Structures are given as C-alpha cells and as structure tokens.
Amino acid sequence: MNEILDAIKNVSIKISQTIKYADLGYSQNQNATGDNQLKLDVLSDEIITTEFSKIASIKALVSEEKDEVLMLNENAKFIIAYDPLDGSSLVDVNFAVGSIFGIYENELKPECLVAAAYSVYGPRLELVICEENNQAPCLYRLDMGDKFAKIKELKMAEKGKLNASGATQKGWSKTHASFIKSLFDEGYRLRYSGAMVADLHQILLKGGGLFSYPATSDCVNGKLRVLFEVLPFAFIYENAGGATTDGVSNSLLSIKVEKTHQTTPCFFGSRYEIDRLKSAYNV
C-alpha cells in the first residue's frame, strides 16, 4: 500500500507541473461516457498509467479516460480506479482541479475499497489520503523541498454552512429544488466551481456543508462516475465523520456496481444536511 500511495504522490507532482504548460485543446477522442477528451486529460492518464505500471501489487487500472480495464499483474490484489484530472475543462480559466483515486482489493465493489485519495492542483498542491475504515483522512501539502508534509487529520462538523449545488437547475426535480431553497433560506452560502474535487475539498476543510449532484430530467442516473469519483469521496467523507447518500439508500457505499462507467446521483456532507436531504427524499 505504501508503494501505491508514494506513486500517487509522484503523479500528483508530475500532473501539477504538466498543467502549468500543457496544451489545453481537445483531442479527437471521447471517453466511455461520451465526453470529449482534453489533451490534458489524456496526458494525465498517461502519467498515472506509466507510474502505476511499475508496481507489482497492482492487478489492474480502471480510468475514466479508458474504455476498458487495463490488466497489469494477473495475480496481484489491488485495482486502482481513478479520474486522472477532474474539472479539466476549468484549467483554461485557472480554477483549482484535481485527481481522484480509489484503491480496491480484488474486486470493484464498495466493500472492497480499502483506501482513497485525491489531489488538488490550486495555488498550493494538496493531497488527502484515507487509508482504511474508521481512520480519519489526512491532509498533506507539498513543501519547498518537493515533499508532502502532513498538515492535520480532517473531521467534519455535525452541521456546516456551505451549499455546493450541481447540475443544471432547470432539470432538477421539484423535491430537490425545494430542498436546496430551504438550505439557502436557512442561511447557507453558495460555493460551487464546477470541479467536484475543489468543491468537496472546500466543504471538507471548512468543516461541513452539502455537495449535491442530483438526478435530472436529462441525466436520470446522475452524471458522476461511481468507481472513479463517487465511492472514493464517500469513503473519505464517511471516515471524516460526514455522511453520504444517493437519495435512495443510506450511504453511497451501499451502491451495487454493475458496470465500469456507471453513474449515480450523489450527495456528500455533514450529518445534519444529509439527514435533512434524506427526510426530503423520503429515504
């Protein structure tokens, strides 16, 4: 596991440097869910693939930018599912973006998720790692010697103040629209950049709030990917004392994975906001 986490640190540094100078144009390809691939997405995926291919304990790689599972070592036990550059379309306006990693043991199931991590490429390079259940995630920051220094453990407050509301509002259900309005009526502040990593990182570091990406009229199964984005962050949030749901079940970690590029509605936050949402959605 330490070798895998060291590799995540290495690729985060490399991608952070690449973002500063790489071509921001689109490639000629689409990923498995139909999004046009930026050249930077493809390059970030190549950096990660090259680094992880050196590690004997990694069985396979599953990426948002790969159509199929990449088998590396048949008899190894770890499968890494990752989003190489979340929010990449915002790089051209210099917003914070990031990479997300889920480390699964033997199978791509929520119960097999043994560690998760994400990096944030902003004014500073930061990395959050959660290594096992019942252990709080830790924040690391790159120092002047190009080493990641541990800053602190991360804990969610019981109730927050931030409201990051995703998806096109005209596609929201009446239930969701009414619920989000009730939070604003209660005094919550809107904080939404369009990069999942940046928005969830802000809520986690500020102590609490709600991130929501609901089902919409044009995306009834949501838009965010289960294996690459949703489950790693659910693992981190719940180990930080927060809560999650898909609007149907009590936890995102109870989702049944049926296909590699599966999507889902998702909600992450402090316990207060998630309890409020579950009540609104009759969960």
Rank of each mutant, 00 (worst) to 15 (best):
residue 1 M to S: 07
residue 2 N to M: 07
residue 4 I to A: 04
residue 9 K to M: 11
residue 10 N to H: 07
residue 18 T to F: 07
residue 18 T to R: 13
residue 19 I to A: 00
residue 21 Y to S: 06
residue 22 A to Q: 11
residue 27 S to R: 02
residue 27 S to M: 15
residue 29 N to V: 04
residue 29 N to K: 13
residue 32 A to S: 09
residue 33 T to C: 02
residue 34 G to L: 05
residue 37 Q to T: 11
residue 39 K to V: 15
residue 41 D to L: 10
residue 42 V to G: 03
residue 46 E to H: 12
residue 49 T to W: 05
residue 52 F to Q: 05
residue 53 S to M: 08
residue 56 A to S: 15
residue 57 S to F: 01
residue 60 A to Q: 08
residue 61 L to K: 02
residue 64 E to T: 06
residue 64 E to H: 12
residue 65 E to S: 12
residue 74 E to S: 14
residue 76 A to R: 07
residue 77 K to D: 12
residue 79 I to H: 02
residue 83 D to V: 10
residue 83 D to F: 08
residue 85 L to R: 01
residue 86 D to W: 06
residue 86 D to I: 12
residue 88 S to A: 12
residue 90 L to I: 13
residue 104 Y to E: 08
residue 106 N to P: 01
residue 107 E to C: 10
residue 108 L to P: 03
residue 111 E to V: 05
residue 112 C to G: 11
residue 120 V to A: 14
residue 123 P to W: 05
residue 123 P to E: 10
residue 125 L to Y: 03
residue 133 N to F: 04
residue 137 P to A: 00
residue 140 Y to P: 06
residue 140 Y to E: 12
residue 148 F to A: 04
residue 152 K to E: 05
residue 155 K to E: 02
residue 155 K to D: 04
residue 155 K to M: 08
residue 156 M to E: 03
residue 162 L to D: 00
residue 163 N to C: 15
residue 168 T to Q: 06
residue 170 K to I: 15
residue 175 T to A: 15
residue 176 H to P: 07
residue 177 A to F: 08
residue 177 A to R: 13
residue 179 F to M: 11
residue 183 L to F: 08
residue 185 D to A: 14
residue 191 R to F: 13
residue 194 G to S: 10
residue 197 V to W: 04
residue 204 L to T: 00
residue 211 F to M: 09
residue 217 S to M: 12
residue 220 V to S: 14
residue 224 L to Y: 11
residue 229 E to M: 14
residue 231 L to V: 06
residue 232 P to H: 01
residue 234 A to L: 09
residue 235 F to P: 03
residue 235 F to E: 02
residue 242 G to M: 02
residue 243 A to F: 00
residue 249 S to N: 12
residue 250 N to W: 10
residue 258 E to T: 08
residue 264 T to W: 00
residue 266 C to H: 07
residue 267 F to N: 06
residue 267 F to V: 00
residue 267 F to L: 02
residue 270 S to T: 14
residue 273 E to H: 08
residue 276 R to F: 02
residue 276 R to I: 06
residue 283 V to D: 09
